[in-house]
Design a binder for these strands. Structure first.
Length: 276
DNA sequence: AGGGGAACCCGTACGC
DNA sequence: TGCGTACGGGTTCCCC
C-alpha cells in the first residue's frame, strides 16, 4: 500500500540508480496495467530513450524521459518498481513482473504487480501537467500550514479522515497515514471536517508532517506487499501506533484501540478515549 | 455539484 | 484435503 513515504522512497532510489540509463528495449507481459497506451505503442515510444530523472507527486512515481514523455506509475496496493542487476532479485519478486525495461548497462527495471490494480501510464509532459493540476497540495510543501489545512477542512461536512484522503485536496495521504496522524493529533476520525478549530487543524498538519517525515526516514511501511527498488521492506510498520493494531492498548493511554469500517468503508483504528 | 456505488484484480482467509 | 467463495483496497467512472 504505497502512500507518500513509500512512493518517495521508490522515486529516490530510482533517481539515484537509473538516471542517465538508456532503455534499449521494453517488454509487456500484462498489458492490463497500461493506461492511455497500447502495449505496442508503449514499447515503440520507450525504445532508445534515456531516463532523465525520477521523482514523486502524490502517490505517483514519475519517470521523466528524454523524449518528453513521462512514465507515471500508480502502484496502488501491490505494485513495485524493482531494479534487477542480473540475478539480484529473488525469483518470486519477478514472478509477477508485468512490464520490463531493459537498460543499456544490462540491468532491467520491472514493474511488478501481484493483483494488478496498479497502473502505468505513458504521458506527454503536457498531458501530465493537465492530470497533475487536479491533485491537491503536497503535505510536505512549506505552503501546507495549519491555516491552509484549516481552510480545506472548513469546506466539507464529511468525516475529517475522508477529507485528508481526498487526493484533490491533499495529495499522498492514504489509510495508514490518515489513521496515524489523527491519532497523533488526538482527533476523532469521524468528526465532521468543518467542526475542526484552527488549533485542531494545526495539530493535524503537524502530525501529518511528522509521521510522513519519520516514515520516509524508515523507508516506508511494509504492511504486506510494499517493496523498495531493491526488493527490500520499509521498517516504519514497527512504529505504527494504531494502524493494524485494533484490540491492542493505546500507546498513549492504554485503553483498547477500536477498529471500525463505519466511517468511509475503510478500516479505521482509533482510541475512543484520547481522540475527540 | 457533490456524493454514492460499481468496477478493476487476484492472493489470502475461511467455510463446507 | 480440496474446492468454492467472500474479501480487501485507491482511483476512476457512471449515475443520481
Amino acid at each position: 500500500m504505497p502512500e507518500l513515504p513509500e512512493t518517495e522512497t521508490i522515486a529516490r532510489d530510482l533517481d539515484g540508480r537509473v538516471s542517465g540509463a538508456t532503455i534499449v528495449d521494453a517488454r509487456v507481459r500484462k498489458s492490463d496495467v497500461l493506461r492511455g497506451v497500447t502495449a505496442a505503442q508503449f514499447v515503440k515510444r520507450l525504445r532508445g530513450v534515456d531516463i532523465v530523472r525520477s521523482w514523486r507527486r502524490a502517490k505517483l512515481i514519475i519517470i521523466d524521459l528524454s523524449s518528453n514523455d513521462r512514465i507515471v506509475v500508480q502502484p496502488r496496493f501491490t505494485g513495485a518498481l524493482l531494479i534487477d542487476e542480473g540475478g539480484s532479485l529473488a525469483a518470486d519478486e519477478l514472478r509477477y513482473s508485468t512490464l520490463q525495461l531493459n537498460l543499456g548497462d544490462g540491468r532491467a527495471l520491472h514493474y511488478r504487480d501481484i493483483r494488478r490494480l496498479g497502473t502505468v501510464a505513458l504521458m506527454t509532459a503536457e498531458r501530465y501537467e493537465a492530470y497533475a493540476a487536479r491533485l491537491g497540495i503536497e503535505p510536505l510543501d512549506p505552503a501546507f500550514s495549519g491555516a491552509h489545512l484549516s481552510g480545506l477542512l472548513r469546506g466539507s461536512r464529511q468525516a475529517v479522515k475522508k477529507v485528508l484522503m481526498d487526493q484533490r485536496l491533499v495529495a499522498g495521504i492514504g489509510n495508514i497515514y490518515a489513521n496515524e496522524a489523527l491519532w497523533r493529533a488526538r482527533i476523532d476520525p469521524s468528526r465532521a471536517s468543518r467542526t475542526l478549530s484552527l488549533d485542531d487543524a494545526g495539530r493535524v498538519r503537524d502530525a501529518l508532517v511528522s509521521v510522513l517525515r519519520e516514515s520516509i526516514a524508515a523507508r516506508g511501511t511494509s504492511f504486506r506487499d510494499y517493496r523498495d527498488a531493491s526488493g527490500a521492506r520499509g521498517t516504519f510498520v514497527e512504529s505504527l501506533a494504531v494502524y493494524g493494531r485494533a484490540g491492542e492498548p493505546c500507546p498513549r493511554c492504554g485503553k483498547r484501540l477500536v477498529g471500525t469500517h463505519a466511517i468511509d468503508g475503510r478500516m479505521t483504528v482509533l482510541c475512543a478515549q484520547c481522540q475527540r
